[in-house]
């Protein structure tokens, strides 16, 4: 892999993770929060594959990426399950309405 290609991929990784983290700070809907988390993880997936390519271990990088997809799906499922419960028992998905605990 050429250096230019690697640089483009690194920019892509940082961009996706940045969009995800910005989304976490900016959005108030719980479903969108989970989507933002997913975007950040997708950036990392790209990073893992690129890291494997850059170090001459493409198989390792790709197998790690596949494992991350599985693990991260579980987190998303649990997050969405919590969102369902929040909608049922709080009545809204707005995370501002959810902050009742004192500092």
């Amino acid at each position: 892999m050429t250096d230019t290609a690697l640089q483009i991929i690194v920019i892509g990784v940082l961009g996706l993770v940045g969009v995800g983290l910005y989304g976490l700070l900016a959005v108030r809907n719980l479903i969108k929060v989970i989507v933002a988390l997913q975007i950040a993880v997708k950036g990392v997936l790209l990073g893992l594959v690129a890291a494997g390519m850059a170090s001459g271990q493409p198989n390792l990088g790709e197998s790690l990426a596949v494992t991350v997809i599985v693990a991260d799906t579980i987190v998303a499922v649990v997050g969405l399950a919590l969102a369902v419960q929040v909608r049922r028992h709080v009545g809204t998905l707005d995370i501002k309405a959810l902050s009742s605990l004192q500092r």
Binding site: V17, G20, V41, V44, G47, A50, G52, L64
Partner: peptide, 16 residues
């Protein structure tokens, strides 16, 4: 989950 994104980025750096 955000913490685990950072750990994975660290793993990317070490792997590369």
């Amino acid at each position: 989950a955000v913490g685990s994104v950072f750990v994975l980025l660290g793993i990317c750096v070490v792997l590369a």
